[in-house]
């Protein structure tokens, strides 16, 4: 027997073992994804910090990156440019007639900011920020919203200690949330009166609030 035959046989046996542990699915379709393949695509993170890569970034570094990469759409201080989303402020406005839903006033978790910036920003050049850049930009956005001070450095280790002001602002509603029952068929109202018309209200395009972005 050749000298290399034995190690080869051992490797073959190991492979068989590995395949045994992964036993094929019912249809035997697809192949096992490698750890490297998964790592390249699995970049999502959760509020509990699950998925966060090692790294860190300071508010000051974040300001520099933000001004270069983000301010053109979101404004130098997150105030928004044109119709792009406002990222800063809006505190206490959620009960107002015209609420301002920002990272600071509305978003429940800092992880949402990190995840979204890393996967989708800057708009039109996604996945171009490094993990450290993303920590820094997130830190700067937290600073703009008075969640951290200007000396703050956001890291994998301290991430889960960050708490957003509106974390407790969400709940799952009852289904349904409006009264339902046998629908009325005759004489259902006291009166029928037109109080608004789309044509007369006539939304002037420039003044209308964007509802989607």
């Amino acid at each position: 027997m050749f000298a290399w035959a034995k190690p080869l046989a051992a490797i073959a046996a190991l492979c068989l073992l590995a395949e045994g542990a992964l036993a094929e699915g019912k249809y035997g379709l697809g192949r096992v994804a490698t750890a490297e393949e998964i790592a390249g695509w699995d970049v999502d993170i959760r509020p509990d910090g699950h998925g966060l890569p090692p790294g860190s970034g300071s508010v000051l570094d974040g300001e520099e990156i933000y001004l270069e990469q983000c301010a053109v759409c979101h404004g130098e201080f997150g105030e928004g440019a044109g119709r792009y989303p406002v990222l800063m402020g809006g505190f206490e406005t959620l009960v107002d007639d015209r609420p301002e839903k920002t990272v600071g006033s509305y978003w429940p978790y800092a992880s949402t900011v990190w995840d979204y910036v890393y996967r989708a920003m800057p708009f039109g050049f996604a996945r171009s920020l490094s993990a450290d850049d993303t920590y820094a930009v997130t830190a700067y956005l937290l600073y703009l919203n008075d969640v951290v001070d200007e000396e703050f450095v956001l890291t994998q280790e301290n991430f889960s200690e960050v708490r957003m002001p509106n974390e407790a602002g969400f709940f799952v509603r009852e289904q349904p949330d409006v009264p339902t029952g046998e629908p009325c068929m005759k004489n259902c109202k006291d009166k029928v009166e037109v109080v608004g018309r789309a044509v007369i209200l006539d939304v002037t395009p420039d003044e209308a609030q964007p509802v989607l972005d």
Partner: peptide, 22 residues
């Protein structure tokens, strides 16, 4: 656990008069 990503927190949640949201 749920991921609470952008489209299920800052968007596609229903803000109520109380300031809370579904």
């Amino acid at each position: 656990a749920a991921w609470y990503h952008r489209e299920e927190t800052s968007k596609y949640t229903d803000l109520l008069p109380s300031g809370e949201a579904y």
